[in-house]
Nucleic acid binder design. Structure first.
Length: 593
RNA sequence: CGGGGAGUAGCGCAGUCUGGCAGCGCACAGCGUUUGGGACGCUGGGGUCGUAGGUUCAAAUCCUAUCUCCCCGACCA
């Protein structure tokens, strides 16, 4: 491609709306253009990279038995009503009516549609397992799109679905995806960690998220440096410290005027925060046995040195959603904000959930449920008992690893992919069943597996750039080679040589972007750095006089001198070396169950 | 949905407080000089000042409403 003809424009200045690096660089490189919050145009350079990423998806999916299909992105509401997600999902789902007043949705994911499809075609255990995938547009009306391509409303996703006879079937398929995902990300030039994750609205038994570690990530990960344990903080487990071995002491009320935080309480009483109990008041939407959703006041207790993990709580009490309780609601159950404890509250008006460590810790300081007073020496089972005793605490830096005891650390990550064991939720709802060897009708066991192409592209830029611009890994670069001609009006021989080299590179099958523009050298070099094409070839009057063309690797700055006559072969070797360098990172990964 | 910021040429911004010809830089077009890391000169094109209503002799500027975008939070397969 000749740069003089390419539909693009580089920007010298950073667009005001862009504040993460990947967004800035892709805007400046003329790759993307925003038309609304979280909705982008992909220009030719971006599209080439997106297509390369998607070719990697196809190769890895095909390698584990996938067959590509394309399902619509407009769905009748009926399919979503069958699984109940029509009712569960809020305004993230874009809904509209067609001309005949039928309710329709824009697809946010395709479990329903896939289950509906296989229902018609899969009848026998002989047809299982099957894996279908597509690369398709999704629309999710996110409340807050942000950070360029990292969090958008309309996006392309590779979503794959497995169909197995039983749990054992998916248990054996799932690790293939786990490996394929590592292969995909490594072939795209990034490293990821797989973490156990919450199954959220997808439901299901097991899920992993593939996280790229970067400061701009929205998720917090908990990692063990010793045994490799890794989990999203939402579900991360840790080994709780042993509570001190003390005999229960008599309950005692003390005046603590104006002391409403754990830190202030610890300071005032000269005790460790770990010797206190923290009360958290929430209101949960709980689905009742009759299907109606009711609000329930939830009183949570964790130790003062720990934080409540709302995902753990949500799962423990099977809540639809949580919100903080208001002061009147808190007082209505006999508690007092800042001085709350489960001692002496109206137990019948609440669901009381206590962290297991609190239940095991003797003589904790807790609120007295009246302003200005706390209680010393509260003991679970003596002053109060709970509706549920479960793990509610959020894992943090320095906590001990559940498996090996080493201190955990936290890191920020961007979720670039996920894999779910879905079970039979969708197949039962849609009636997707098969007959087994005994002629018995059984629901198909499903899994679903997603990767967003645009987000992955943005993450690659986040992880591969410098001050001057992008540094594309060669496997996903829009072009492999950028040929920069430094010809001027006075050096037509340079133009001729560059034209010829361009033609030879094209003929040799090299993906080459040819900067034939009438620009000064500085402009061309700066644009080349910005676009981040991995190999730059420079042909100018000086070099040509000596019969040489200069080569340079964008990622390292390493430079080479090639004879013009052998340049094509040298470049091909360089491309092969760059590809091999990335391919060398694609290795077997042990499956962490 | 809560808090904050911003809408003026394709991009970055000034002008708004204190109403009075709509500007600057980049980009774009033409001509000339230049030509290995974002050249220079001259000339030129491009604007419903987010939208609607109001106040006023006069509104980018004041008032009211509204839309949009960005950031933090809530939310998020």
């Amino acid at each position: 491609m000749r740069l003089s003809k390419l539909f693009f424009q580089t920007l010298r200045e950073v667009p005001a709306d862009a504040d993460v690096v990947s967004h800035q660089l892709m805007m400046r490189a003329g790759m993307i253009h925003q038309i609304a919050a979280g909705i982008f145009d992909f220009l030719p350079l971006a599209l080439r990279t997106k297509q390369k990423i998607e070719e990697i998806f196809r190769a890895e999916m095909d390698a584990i038995g996938g067959q590509e299909v394309t399902l619509p992105m407009v769905h009748p509401a009926e399919l979503w009503q069958k699984t109940g997600r029509w009712y569960q999902i809020g305004s993230d789902m874009a809904r509209f009516r067609d001309r005949n007043d039928r309710e329709m949705v824009l697809g946010m994911t395709h479990e329903e549609i896939m289950a509906d499809l296989v229902k018609k075609y899969i009848k026998s255990y002989r047809q299982l397992p099957t894996m279908l995938y597509q690369i398709q547009t999704k629309f999710r009306d996110e409340p807050r799109p942000r950070a360029g391509l990292l969090r958008v409303r309309e996006f392309t996703m590779k979503d794959a679905y497995t169909f197995d006879r039983d749990e054992a079937g998916i248990d054996s398929y799932y690790p293939h995806f786990y490996q394929a995902y590592f292969n995909i990300f490594r072939r795209a030039g990034i490293d990821v960690v797989a973490v156990k994750s919450d199954t959220g609205m997808m439901g299901g038994r097991m899920a992993h998220e593939f996280m790229a570690l970067t400061e701009i990530g929205e998720d917090t990960l908990v990692l063990c440096p010793s045994c490799g344990y890794s989990a999203n903080r939402q579900v991360a487990l840790f080994r709780k410290p042993d509570p001190p071995a003390e005999d229960p002491l008599p309950l005692q009320e003390v005046a603590t005027p104006g002391v409403t935080t754990i830190a202030a309480l610890a300071e005032f009483l000269q005790v460790e925060p770990s010797a206190t109990a923290k009360a958290v008041f929430l209101v949960a939407d709980i689905e009742q046995p009759d299907g109606k959703v009711q609000e329930q006041f939830v009183f949570c207790v964790v130790r003062g040195d720990m934080e409540l993990n709302e995902t753990k709580l949500t799962n423990a009490i099977r809540a639809r959603r949580l919100r903080p309780a208001t002061t009147p609601e808190i007082q209505a159950v006999g508690a007092e904000p800042g001085y709350g404890s489960p001692v002496g509250v109206h137990r019948e008006a609440m669901w009381l959930v206590v962290d297991d460590l609190v239940a095991r810790s003797p003589n904790l300081v807790a609120g007295a449920n009246r302003a200005g007073y706390h209680l010393l020496n509260t003991n679970y089972g003596r002053e109060y008992s709970a509706d549920q005793v479960v793990d509610l605490a959020a894992a943090s830096d320095g906590h001990s690893c559940l498996h090996c005891g080493a201190p955990l650390y936290t890191a920020r990550g961007v979720e670039v992919g996920n894999i779910f064991k879905l079970g039979t939720k969708y197949s039962i709802a849609m009636g997707a069943t098969y007959l087994d060897e005994n002629g018995e009708e059984k629901p198909i066991v499903m899994g679903s597996y997603g990767i967003g192409s645009g987000r992955l592209m943005a993450v690659i830029v986040e992880l591969h750039h410098d001050e001057a611009g992008i540094q594309w890994p060669i496997t996903v670069a829009p072009y492999q080679v950028m040929l920069v001609s430094l010809a001027t009006e006075k050096t037509p021989e340079v133009t001729a040589a560059a034209d010829q080299l361009y033609a030879e590179l094209l003929a040799a099958g090299v993906e080459v972007l040819y900067d034939d523009r009438d620009e000064r050298a500085g402009v061309k070099f700066n644009d080349a750095d910005l676009l981040g094409i991995p190999i730059r070839l420079t042909l100018g009057a000086k070099g040509l006089k000596n019969g040489v063309v200069e080569g340079k690797l964008r990622r390292s700055g390493e430079s080479f001198t090639f004879a013009v006559s052998t340049a094509v072969a040298e470049v091909q070797a360089l491309i092969a070396a760059e590809i091999a360098r990335i391919q060398a990172t694609v290795l077997p990964v042990p499956f962490e169950d």
